[in-house]
Design a binder for these strands. Structure first.
Length: 765
RNA sequence: GCCGUGGUGGCGGAAUGGUAUACGCGACGGACUCAAAAUCCGUUCCCCGCAAGGGGUUGAGGGUUCGAGUCCCUCCCGCGGCACCA
């Protein structure tokens, strides 16, 4: 009998839905377990095979935890603000809300067809006004705490998306979304002071269980370095090597440094202005290219090196960046490669002077210890339509009376959400204004504070806003009084295991940790860290090892695999294809292999007998132990291999007891839940597999009574002997020596005999 | 350039310092069949050998160890992150 996957998949999916067995209960005496996957952006292309890799892994874990008696929360929702829906609207005129709704329906249908055990009763989208009401409310908490501020700053600007970007959204000098090289633009932007949390975001990594590479990447991104700030007259420089200060023969400012104008002498002004104009035209990539020759220009001014009172010239060069340290450096050509190259090119002195100690240098110069971070504040404004409106009003009157500093007034809580208005045109503008700015009825409003005429902020939030706190909303998704009740937060947080892509390590993962910490400080959430454990999955590549892409036409659609081979085959193959953290190529042949395995499983009921070989019982208990451990370790591929090995043993033996089959089906249920339920029902089981207890390995039954011991001579394998497991060491050595082939090599008494229990006897002769 | 990570059959991959190549794919052979498919059973790292057995093999070269895919050193290649961050 080969199994009819289409019938079975549907049957059990609707049975689960009807019984509501995946609904997490807020009041429950069982221990809670919160399993989280990154919620998807519901794109028009539908689900990609990459999505289910993460979802299947966490579904396996969630299903196992339920069988182990945990109260599991495993939710799903939609991160639906973002550019593709907006760009589609520009092309077709269809409102993003409509496309988003359609795409969500497609995604939901696809996810349900794979049989994920999500609690659909908690589903929401970040674009729901009932949700973004709280995103806006949280932004106002940042604003009220002084952490959200509007500032004129050089920001990253994507000329294609016509939108400002956060530093985290610039990948290798290119726009994270579209790959276009970013430009620098000076713009007034809402910023959030994530840098105030730099030290805690770094230090608290010690309190969480993240993959080491994830921690490392966050540490590098935060980029803490200890050094000193030292005054060369009015110029403050930052250095990690104050000990080298006697060799500092010039000072370099970044071209954007505020003191450049004042320091430039009339004689040098034309040249300096020309240089600054030249630099401002460069993209980040051009400027960051350290293989190119360094360029710079002399300001005409000199300052005093406080360590030796020597006059040193002040230069401007774009190898110094304005927003790190103080934007100014002391150049020590003798100790720094870059300074050396620059000094050689412009014929500046290179001197070898003795080193001071760190403290000596500070004392001599009046310098201060200083810690600097590479992390920058979060650029939070976007000049696009399809995002949460920033809930602030600008009032000139309040600005002039001083009742609202800079005139920015928060929209009162009772007026939230500030709804996204309908527009006719979605096009972003070249002048960097949001499309919302052309809607008079939205822009013109009354000041909540003084009642006078005022205008709304027209920038929207980045798509990272809604995803920064969604894990909190799942806990209490229908609450209208708060984003989530304190009691429920206390019950469910933190997330026990969170899986997602490495590409979010310095974006979503960092932002949401920060966001949660802020809410914690304000007393709104109960844990300082949102995720106790973080894991990540590798990309699924096309069968030729390249990235799947629509343009190459090598994208695998999960629908096709589910329809042809069944949901369980799809799930198990995705888990079997390779180590979970590594990128792996898709192989349709591999899918066929897993389907063959499930066909073999489907025939197990035909082999049921009154008794079974001891080898079958033994391998069952070994398999239970291995699979249990492998799932906990995210080692899903070897768990699947263990299932296959078990079935191979049963086939070789030809018979198996019903009891063993039931145990095996329960063990299989997290990976292949539809087939496990069907077969369980076929052999007379009652109730869902999902509510059966997780099988327990019996160590006595799993133990071997006979062992194969490898016998080595000088570390080289010369034979093997089968002995009873309880044989003592002396007898074992005698038996090993007696092995005929070994005896040829071991004639005299061995110099040394090494016995590795249960594995090896090694004679050194 | 710096940091991290990896390199194992024809392919995807497995292996707490202890029998390298589990499991799957592919290939080959057999059974079943009028035949094919499906299924079931075998074989499948390389070399020598009828066999017993022997030799070699985890990117290259050294080392530590009774024993190294695993640990250490040097080098080569792939992937990821950061990238003039002072």
């Amino acid at each position: 009998m080969s199994y009819d996957h289409q019938r079975i998949d549907k049957k059990w999916q609707s049975a689960w839905e009807k019984a509501g067995i995946f609904h997490a209960k807020d009041e429950d005496s069982r221990e809670k377990f919160y399993a989280l996957v990154e919620f998807p952006y519901p794109s028009g292309a539908g689900l990609h095979v990459g999505h289910p890799r993460s979802y299947t892994a966490m579904d396996v874990i969630a299903r196992k935890k339920r069988m182990e008696g945990k109260n599991v929360l495993f939710p799903m929702g939609w991160d639906a603000f973002g550019l593709p829906a907006e760009n589609y609207a520009i092309k077709t005129g269809v409102h993003p809300a409509i496309t988003t709704k359609e795409n969500i329906n497609t995604f939901r249908r696809q996810l349900q067809s794979i049989g994920f055990s999500f609690d659909w009763s908690r589903e929401f989208s970040t674009t729901d006004p009932a949700y973004y009401k709280w995103t806006q409310w949280m932004f106002l908490q940042f604003f009220k705490a002084g952490l959200a501020y509007k500032a004129k700053a050089m920001i990253n600007w994507c000329p294609k998306d016509k939108c400002g970007l956060a530093n985290e959204e610039v990948i290798g000098g290119n726009c994270e979304r579209c790959g276009t090289p970013v430009e620098k633009r000076e713009k007034e932007q809402w910023m959030i002071a994530i840098t105030k949390y730099a030290d805690r975001l770094l230090a608290d990594l010690d309190t969480v269980d993240y993959l080491p590479k994830i921690k490392k990447q966050q540490q590098d991104w935060i980029g803490r370095s200890e050094g000193a700030e030292i005054d060369f007259d009015d110029i403050k420089v930052f250095t990690t090597r104050p000990d080298t200060i006697l060799g500092a023969t010039f000072v370099v400012l970044a071209p954007e440094h505020p003191m450049v104008g004042a320091l430039t002498t009339d004689g040098c002004r034309a040249e300096v202005e020309e240089y600054i104009a030249l630099v401002s035209k460069k993209t980040d990539i051009e400027r960051g290219d350290d293989t190119k020759e360094k360029t710079g220009v002399f300001t005409g001014s000199f300052v005093v090196n406080p360590a030796n009172n020597e006059k040193v010239p002040v230069w401007i060069a774009d190898y110094v960046v304005v927003n790190y340290g103080t934007g100014a450096i002391m150049a020590v050509p003798e100790h720094d490669e870059r300074d050396h190259a620059f000094a050689e090119k412009y014929d500046l002195p290179i001197v070898d002077r003795p080193l001071l100690s760190f403290d000596e240098a500070l004392k001599k110069t009046g310098g201060r210890k200083k810690v600097t971070y590479k992390l920058r504040d979060w650029v939070f404004s976007r000049q696009r339509y399809w995002g949460e409106p920033i809930p602030l009003v600008h009032c000139e009157d309040c600005a002039s009376t001083g009742s609202a500093p800079d005139g920015w007034v928060a929209v009162p809580d009772e007026d939230l959400p500030v709804l996204l208005p309908d527009v006719k045109k979605y096009e972003p503008t070249d002048n960097g204004e949001s499309p919302l700015s052309s809607i008079k009825s939205f822009v013109n409003t009354k000041c909540p504070k003084c009642g006078g005429a005022a205008t709304r902020e027209t920038d929207t939030m980045p798509n990272w806003a809604g995803s920064s706190w969604y894990f909190l909303r799942y806990i209490d998704p229908k609450n209208d009084e708060a984003f989530a009740s304190k009691e429920k937060l206390k019950h469910w947080m933190p997330v026990d295991v969170y899986n997602g892509g490495m590409e979010h390590t310095t974006l979503h993962l960092l932002y949401s940790r920060f966001w949660n910490k802020f809410l914690f400080d304000q007393g709104f959430v109960t844990t300082s860290e949102p995720y106790a454990r973080r894991h990540s999955h590798g990309l699924i590549m096309a069968d030729d090892g390249t990235k799947m892409s629509k343009s190459k036409g090598n994208v695998v659609n999960p629908d096709d695999i589910v329809a042809e081979f069944g949901a369980d085959t799809f799930r198990m193959y995705i888990m079997f294809m390779g180590p979970f953290e590594e990128p792996v190529p898709w192989s349709t042949n591999g899918v066929v292999g897993v389907r063959r395995f499930l066909d073999r499983v489907a025939r197990l009921p035909e082999m049921i007998a009154e008794t079974e070989n001891a080898s079958v019982t033994k391998v069952l208990h070994k398999t239970i132990a291995k699979v249990t451990k492998d799932i906990d370790d995210f080692s899903f591929n070897t768990a699947v291999a263990a299932y296959m090995a078990f079935v191979n043993v049963v086939y070789a033996s030809g018979r198996v007891t019903k009891q063993t089959v039931v145990q095996f089906l329960m063990l299989l249920a997290p990976f292949a839940p539809h087939l496990a339920n069907e077969l369980y029902e076929t052999i007379g089981g009652t109730g869902f597999a999902e509510v059966q207890p997780w099988p327990v390995s019996n160590a006595t039954l799993a133990a071997d009574d006979e062992l194969t011991i490898a016998v080595q001579v000088n570390g080289k394998l010369r034979g093997s002997i089968v002995v009873s497991a309880d044989m003592n060491e002396a007898d074992l050595i005698v038996a090993a020596k007696a092995e005929p082939n070994v005896a040829k090599y071991v004639i005299d008494e061995p110099k040394k005999t090494i016995v590795v229990k249960g594995k090896i006897v090694n004679f050194v002769v």
